[in-house]
């Protein structure tokens, strides 16, 4: 098998809700665990309308910046009650929420540390493939300024990757298209 013989993507379509959501999906950490907060947001289309048939998935390091995965060379280490993965379908108003812990800084390329961040996949009817973005944290100004991924994003758009503080955590809206379009990544 050579490069290029992978299976193509197809849209989740309008009926994703019967197959993908899990009752505990929005919880990247055990529901009863301490120290969690919500990241809430709304998924918008290019006309500024909420997308009610979408799904958000998140993947992130634990508070020490580690991953419970064999490819973390420091060795997999589980943070109690923490799954690192969140999944939430959008509701009729395009809203989603993920309950999680703040990730620690994560090693990057060439000696640079990455600022705390969460990788996000967006799926929706009308998307033939997922789109990928990242959530960064507003109180991490110094680490964000040194982050190699953020540094590669032109200044006015960079702000779309930084969550806003909220009463029970953060707000991170995702605009697929249009004014204030969220930065999406080629992954």
């Amino acid at each position: 098998m050579s490069k290029g013989e992978t299976t193509p993507s197809q849209t989740v379509g309008p009926y994703l809700h019967i197959g993908l959501p899990w009752p505990d999906g929005p919880y990247a950490l055990a529901e009863e665990a301490e120290g969690g907060f919500w990241i809430r947001g709304t998924l918008y289309d290019g006309a500024g309308a909420p997308i009610p048939d979408g799904l958000i998935e998140t993947w992130q390091a634990d508070p020490e910046g580690r991953f419970d995965h064999p490819d973390d060379p420091r060795g997999a280490q589980a943070w109690p009650g923490f799954r690192g993965f969140g999944r939430c379908e959008t509701d009729a108003e395009g809203r989603f929420g993920i309950r999680t812990l703040k990730p620690g800084p994560v090693p990057g390329l060439g000696g640079a540390m990455q600022a705390p961040h969460i990788d996000v996949s967006v799926f929706a009817r009308g998307m033939l493939n997922r789109t990928v973005t990242r959530i960064y944290f507003p109180e991490e100004a110094e680490a964000n300024a040194a982050d190699p991924v953020l540094a590669a994003v032109p200044e006015p758009e960079r702000a779309t990757l930084i969550a806003r503080p909220a009463e029970d955590g953060y707000v991170f809206d995702i605009r697929v298209q249009g004014k204030d379009e969220t930065v999406f990544f080629d992954i």
Binding site: G126, M127, R134, P148, G178, T182, F185, D186
Partner: peptide, 14 residues
């Protein structure tokens, strides 16, 4: 209305 219009930013695999 559901595709990004700006070019995607290359994300190195870390």
């Amino acid at each position: 209305l559901r595709h990004p219009k700006r070019p995607l930013q290359l994300l190195p695999h870390m």
